[in-house]
Each structure stands twice: as structure tokens, then as C-alpha cells.
């Protein structure tokens, strides 16, 4: 049974290898393992022998007006073949532009034309990997105009056109709803339950620049309102593999496992209900 997992960090390799928590799984950014060789790949291989693994891409740039980079896709395919992840996911965002890479998940106007382009890119990704992928909702910071679809309708259309699934990042929903002024509950309630294959939980922080924006830092514990939204989501859709993400100001493994155990404990009654 795959329940709650943790984003795997190099400083925690040893503990990840020996931890005996039931249902624990790990997730990594494949971009951090796209090397010809090295100790990271060896460590990931050892952990993968004991635990399910998810590959969560941050760099394929599916929302760029360009085909996904062939070399990147080939490198991803090699990792998928080698590590046999139970989930492969990417973001509804872009990062490449005319040969340069901006290491961030950038927004775009959700037009019908953008939908056609992104659906084609998701299709290319799925064809190259020979499997279904999950697409994650982004954190948004800038109110744009020119959208033809709201984000939930855009994601639904993407699912319908490509057969992809969704990775719902509850913290991103909370952050975007706060930044752009909509209700997180309304957004979550409208997501198609059957398409959701994974859930992310992470921490955020107020903008150090002094604005009212919340920043998806992955640098703090999951906030209480995000746990409340998570409860609401799994009560509605049922249990899903749930990940605690932490990429900055990383505490010790035990601290992260305590958060992970909280998610596992919340999943437990939902799992029982689903199997009743």
C-alpha cells in the first residue's frame, strides 16, 4: 500500500534507506539525476530497491510554445526505464524560452490556443515515455488577462484531450487563491476526482519583499489551513498517494517524517472507508 511519501533529499539518503515506515515512498526531481553517473544515482537505486518512487519533473516546460526538448525527454525516459516509478509528473508551466532555461515555473494566459499547444506537448511526453503522466497545478503570483478558461476547466480539458491525470498541489491552490483572490475550496471542489493521481503538500511564506503575496517556498512546514484543505479534498475524492515536499531550509529526516506521518494518519480512515 502506497500512502504518504517524502521528497527525497541527498542529506537523508541513509535514513531513507533504513526507515521502516509502512506505506512510505519517495519522490525526486529527475533533473537532479540526469547525469551520466555518480553517487546520487547509486543512492537512488539502493532506495528504489526498497521503496516505490515517483519522478516529478520541473524542467520539461510543457507550457512553452515549443516542442519538449528531445534530449531532456530522452534523459527522462532513461530514468523512467531504470527506476520504474509508480508515477511520473510535470507542471502546467513553462521554463524554456528560445534556448534559455529559467529555473522557475512560469505562468501563461490560458487560451484555447495555449490549450492546443500544451495538450500536444503532454501527448508528446506521454508518447515518449509510453505511459500516462500527471500534471500539477502551478502557484501563481501575477494576475494576467486574456484567459479563455479558468484553471480547473483548463486542467479538465487537458485530461479529456490527452488522457493525462492530475497532481493536485494543495499548497499551490492555497497560495494562488490567496494571491489572485479566489476561494481555494471552490477550486478544489471543482477538480475531477477520478483524474487525480497524487497530492502534494508543502509550506509557504509571506513575501520578504513586503507585498501581500504568499510564496510557495517549500521552505516551511505545511500550514494549518493547507492541512484543512487536504482533509476536505481526501474526504471528497478518497485516498491518494500524498507527498510532503521540502526543498529549502531542510530539517532533519525525523522532522519531515513527523509531517509525513500526519498525512498518513489522515489517509488511514479514508482508506478504510474506500475499502469498506
Amino acid at each position: 500500500m502506497i500512502t504518504a511519501g517524502l521528497g527525497l533529499k541527498p542529506q537523508h539518503y541513509d535514513e531513507a534507506l533504513t526507515c521502516d515506515a509502512e506505506g512510505l515512498w519517495f519522490e525526486v526531481h529527475p533533473e537532479n539525476y540526469m547525469s551520466a553517473g555518480g553517487p546520487r544515482l547509486a543512492a537512488l537505486e539502493a532506495i528504489r530497491e526498497r521503496r516505490p518512487l515517483s519522478l516529478h519533473g520541473v524542467g520539461l516546460s510543457l507550457a512553452a510554445d515549443a516542442d519538449p526538448d528531445r534530449e531532456h525527454l530522452a534523459a527522462l525516459k532513461r530514468l523512467v526505464d531504470r527506476f520504474e516509478p509508480f508515477v511520473v509528473s510535470e507542471h502546467l508551466a513553462w521554463s524554456t524560452h528560445r534556448g534559455q532555461h529559467q529555473p522557475d515555473l512560469l505562468p501563461f494566459p490560458r487560451t484555447h490556443a495555449a490549450l492546443a499547444r500544451i495538450a500536444a506537448n503532454v501527448g508528446r511526453m506521454q508518447d515518449a515515455l509510453g505511459r500516462k503522466v500527471l500534471i500539477e497545478n502551478p502557484s501563481l503570483y501575477l494576475p494576467l488577462t486574456g484567459h479563455d478558461l479558468d484553471e480547473v476547466d483548463f486542467l479538465k480539458a487537458l485530461v479529456a484531450q490527452t488522457g493525462c491525470g492530475l497532481l493536485v498541489d494543495v499548497n499551490n491552490v492555497f497560495v494562488s487563491a490567496s494571491n489572485l483572490g479566489y476561494r481555494a475550496e471552490t477550486y478544489l471542489d471543482a477538480l475531477p476526482a477520478e483524474a487525480i493521481g497524487e497530492i502534494h503538500l508543502a509550506g509557504h511564506a509571506p513575501d520578504e519583499g513586503g507585498s501581500d503575496l504568499l510564496i510557495d517556498t517549500h521552505g516551511a512546514p505545511v500550514a494549518e489551513p493547507v492541512w484543512t484543505l487536504y482533509r476536505r479534498l481526501i474526504d471528497r475524492i478518497g485516498p491518494r498517494p500524498t507527498l510532503i515536499e521540502r526543498d529549502d531550509d531542510i530539517p532533519d529526516f525525523a522532522t519531515l517524517m513527523a509531517e509525513r506521518d500526519r498525512a498518513a494518519a489522515m489517509l488511514e480512515p479514508v482508506l478504510e472507508k474506500a475499502h469498506a
Partner: peptide, 8 residues
């Protein structure tokens, strides 16, 4: 700027 997504 980086030219690829792998910043390794």
C-alpha cells in the same frame, strides 16, 4: 542563463 533544465 542556464541552457538546460539540469542545473547539476
Amino acid at each position: 542563463p542556464p541552457t538546460g533544465a539540469t542545473l547539476l
